[in-house]
Write a protein that binds this DNA or RNA. Structure first.
Length: 591
RNA sequence: GGCCCAGUAGUUCAACUGGAUAGAAUAUCAGAUUUCGGCUCUGAUGGUUGGGGGUUCGAAUCCUCCCUGGGUCACCA
């Protein structure tokens, strides 16, 4: 039984004995810093049941608790807030009760299984900064869900089919001279991306020519031979033309290899890939099914629609009049396919930018109407755009930040700064390189994840590599420093500590934070929010550092306090490590 | 135009989802200090939470009307 449960029980008892009233709910919150106490009971909501002066009621309850709950040392009442103070022994006791902090916070498996989709790139160009936010969010949310007790399957749908890849194919056929990643030394996704750019250039040239010959803009845009030929490639691909399919497979494979490299560098992975080329025909039979169930209706021209006006939305097309599928059709089919592939899955999360908010709202509604039980647990992990100080990212204008370039740049900056600090001179070169990777990526990941997903991020490369303040490297640094304390403590003979220690205020607040960690993970899982974990971790680190500042951990006189503080700092380090792993960040032993 | 999202110190972000005097970091300023691992420590300045109205013991948070920025409303994906 947690202390909160005990207290709640006692408060209800107190209300009965003193006022003869039965309370239905008791609200707790951790006491704010500027007040004395550890846990606060808000009295105001109780006034609905118990009539009277909140201060008097608070005092009465406080008296009762102090007398009847041994863990309560004392209390004070400010306005309608009853601030309770715990005995030091309670904190030492709870700290002791968790034997191994390296697994602290992880909930027991609760039997739920969910699927998280993220990344889902097109195969015609390399990953960019926007994908980085997507990947980091998706991966981190997956880890947080795992920690909250769920089984998680990470997946991506690779958009390997369509006009976009055909454009790259066309350009490669005409201007490629047989180039391959091997012959050029270029990463496959970069090579294919280059041809996509070349296509765009040629296409625009052709459009200009046509316009000069007197065609209208609109006309020219459709008639340009490059586009026509790319569309022809798509038709041939759909018809299964051997040569086209072979080229398509080859170029896609180049891209996959390139993506894999980027994913590995980013530290993200997937349990299952879906390919659009395998799934783009899915969904049609479910449209038929929906028609029979009356979920959809058909217009005279044969197109199929879903009426969502009851739900405050519009009519939505789910099948074209020529019987071919639209995006929505495919997504319906893919979702159902996944539920068949993974029968245990009870929910799915889609990590997709907020420009598709409407699409997913509709998708989830339709799946619900089709009667799938898991439709209730679909979640669109929607996130805002990543802007640059210079303005919007536009691939055509070359203002996109390439993912590989950015990662490289972060690591180089980490190198410069870490070398400036000069604490790592004795590391072997390969250890240093590893360290710079950890720091550079840590900075990037933390910078992106600490912001609420819904908000758009203004990505300032200058500021993101700042190693001061609320940043990833600062957290990594604290971890490394605690490891250093551990190494020093190993050489000392430390006496045991017991529950009679007098705790320092700072120690108490660090302990309070540690105590809240499992709950924080649940909360983060509930809200799909890595930012919650990031900000918690920063708070813990900051609190620990100020504790460390005021109370030396390794005192000249080695006493039981020393042992306790060493143990406490190790626990902090373990929690930081767990937190970081939820954010996909590595922590270095030294830096 | 309809719908959706965002608007919080100069800047980047918080605020335990309705609780106390809205907090950090950074920047700026003023002192102290020089290495037990943050170019250290302490303090200060900085806010009508976009604006108005409403709901109640209590609002950054909820309802409403405006303002600003973004997104979205295709037989595109």
């Amino acid at each position: 039984m947690s202390i909160e449960d005990t207290l709640k029980h006692q408060i209800i008892l107190a209300a009965q004995k003193r006022y003869g009233q039965t309370l239905d709910a008791v609200e707790f919150q951790t006491t704010r810093k500027d007040f004395v106490g550890d846990l606060t009971v808000v009295i105001f909501p109780l006034l609905r049941v118990i009539k009277g002066n909140p201060v008097e009621i608070g005092t009465a309850i406080g008296d009762f608790l102090t007398q009847n709950v041994p863990e309560i040392k004392g209390f004070n009442v400010v306005k309608g807030f009853l601030n309770l103070s715990f005995e030091d022994a309670y904190f030492i006791n709870t700290f002791d009760a968790v034997a191994d902090y390296s697994h602290y916070g992880w909930a027991e498996p609760n039997g739920e299984t969910v699927m998280v989709e993220y990344s889902s790139p097109n195969t015609n160009k390399p990953l960019h900064l926007g994908h980085i936010r997507n990947n980091l969010l998706g991966f981190s949310v997956s880890e947080i869900l795992k920690a909250s007790g769920k089984t998680v399957y990470k997946t991506q749908i690779i958009n390997d089919r369509g006009i976009h890849i055909c454009k790259s194919m066309w350009a490669w056929q005409h201007f490629g001279n047989g180039q391959t990643p091997l012959s050029t030394g270029l990463k496959g996704d970069k090579l294919v991306g280059n041809y996509y750019v070349i296509f765009d250039q040629k296409y625009k040239e052709q459009v200009r020519e046509l316009v000069a010959q007197g065609h209208s803009e609109e006309d020219a845009a459709k008639q340009a031979p490059s586009l026509q030929q790319a569309q022809e490639l798509l038709r041939l691909w759909e018809a299964g033309d051997a040569e086209v399919v072979a080229l398509w497979s080859e170029m896609n494979q180049w891209v996959y290899d390139g993506f894999e490299t980027t994913y590995r560098k980013l530290g993200v992975d997937f349990d299952q890939n879906y390919y659009e080329s395998n799934t783009y025909l899915l969904g049609k039979e479910h449209i038929q099914e929906g028609l029979e169930k009356g979920v959809f209706y058909q217009k005279e021209d044969g197109s199929v629609w879903c009426d969502l006006t009851q739900d405050g939305l519009d009519h939505k097309l789910v099948l074209r009049s020529d019987g071919t599928s639209v995006y929505m059709t495919q997504d319906i089919g893919t979702a159902i396919q996944r539920s068949i592939d993974y029968p245990k899955v009870t929910g799915m999360t889609y990590t997709v930018g907020n420009e598709q908010d409407y699409h997913f709202k509709v998708l989830f509604l339709i799946l619900g109407k089709l009667g799938y039980p898991w439709a209730k647990h679909l979640y669109h992990l929607s996130y805002g755009m990543v802007d640059l100080p210079s303005g919007k990212m536009k691939s055509r204008e070359g203002t996109v930040v390439d993912a590989d370039d950015l990662i490289h740049e972060m690591q180089e900056t980490a190198r410069e700064i870490a070398q400036g600090l000069g604490k790592i001179d004795d590391l072997a070169p390969e250890e240093k390189t590893k360290l710079f990777e950890q720091i550079g990526l840590g900075a990037l990941k933390y910078y992106i994840l600490k912001v609420d997903p819904k908000k758009r991020i203004l990505f300032d490369p200058e500021e993101s590599v700042d190693f001061q303040g609320n940043t990833g490297p600062f957290i990594q640094y604290t971890y490394a420093r605690i490891q250093s304390i551990g190494r020093k403590a190993q050489g000392l003979v430390l006496p045991d500590y017991d529950q009679t220690l007098d705790l320092h205020d700072k120690e108490r607040s660090v302990l309070k934070l540690l105590k809240g960690f499992p709950e924080k993970i649940q909360e983060a899982a509930l809200h799909y929010s890595p930012a919650l974990i990031a900000n918690y971790t920063y708070e813990l680190v900051k609190e620990f550092n100020s504790f460390y500042q005021n109370v030396p951990i390794l005192t000249a006189e080695i006493g039981p306090e020393t042992t306790f503080r060493v143990a406490l700092s190790q626990a902090v380090a373990d929690v930081i490590k767990t937190s970081c792993s939820l954010l996909g960040m590595e922590v270095p032993e030294r830096m």
